Simulated scan of single mutants.
Amino acid sequence: MNDSTAPFTFIGRIRSMRYAIAGIGELLVSQHNAWVHAAATAVVVCLGLIVGVTPIEWCVLILAITTVWVAEALNTAFELLCDVASPDFHPVVKKAKDVAAGAVLLSALGSVAIGLIVFLPYLARWL
């Protein structure tokens, strides 16, 4: 079915949101790394509230958090598609999955760097 010709409807947008929320739920239920990301997100938000980061710092932190979550979601979707396309081991599929996992790692490392840049000055004042 070609949805590009379907008219815009409010009900259709709500249905799309339900699918997206179901996808996030699947990510949280099926991916252990998502639990790590959820814990890290909670720590960053709590620490940000405790130290009183500025609005600009919140924007940077939210962007970093979102980047990691998006990378994890895309990696999960990619892995699921790879598993369907090639249920048996294939070295190229392994490489593709490794690259996708590497993208998550890169986004997480970048987010850690951002967190250190934002939080170290606040934490240094307490020491």
Score class of each variant (00 low, 15 high):
M1S: 13
N2T: 11
S4G: 04
S4R: 14
A6G: 07
T9D: 09
F10D: 10
I14G: 04
R15Y: 08
R15H: 07
R18W: 09
R18A: 13
A22Q: 03
E26F: 05
L27Q: 08
L27K: 02
L27A: 05
L28F: 05
S30I: 06
Q31W: 01
N33I: 12
V36W: 08
V36Q: 06
H37D: 15
A38M: 14
A39D: 09
A39Y: 08
V45F: 05
L49M: 14
V53K: 06
P55A: 01
L61N: 04
L63C: 12
A64F: 00
V70M: 14
E72W: 03
L74P: 10
N75F: 03
T76Q: 11
T76H: 13
F78S: 04
V84F: 06
F89S: 03
H90G: 07
H90S: 08
V92D: 15
K94F: 11
D98T: 09
V99S: 01
A100Q: 02
L105Q: 04
A108K: 03
L109Y: 02
L109S: 04
S111P: 06
I114K: 02
G115H: 07
I117H: 05
V118E: 00
Y122R: 01
L123E: 10
A124D: 11
A124F: 09
R125Y: 03
W126G: 01
